[in-house]
Amino acid sequence: MIASELFFIMNVAEIPLFTRSAIFVLGLALILAFIRMVKGPSITDRIVALDTMAVIAISIMVLYAIKTQNALFLDVAIAMALVVFLGTVAFARSFERRMID
């Protein structure tokens, strides 16, 4: 009880509000990575930027799950992680093969 009185500076309902501003910052990061994807001199730059965008999107999904208090959005994050890894590896493999053949 004493501990809770000591720490009672911020309201308990602050977490969803805090999550909102965090999602805004992550949206900015998404835009930065997107600029690199559009600009990227080589095709591998674009793939790296796409990979980063996907990880940022995963973070946004986790934050959205916290914000809405709905754990179902974490499943979306898992699916996104799986698909993005396969996509990146397939792209890298195909570039390498194209250079050899």
């Binding site: 977490i15 805090f18 965090a22 910052v25 990061a29 930065l32 990575a33 600029i35 990880v55 916290i66």
Partner: peptide, 17 residues
């Protein structure tokens, strides 16, 4: 944890650019 995670993820986007 949310603040640190946001910070590092933003740094990632910034670094990629």
């Amino acid at each position: 944890l949310i603040a640190l995670g946001t910070f590092f993820t933003f740094i990632a986007g910034f670094g990629v650019l």
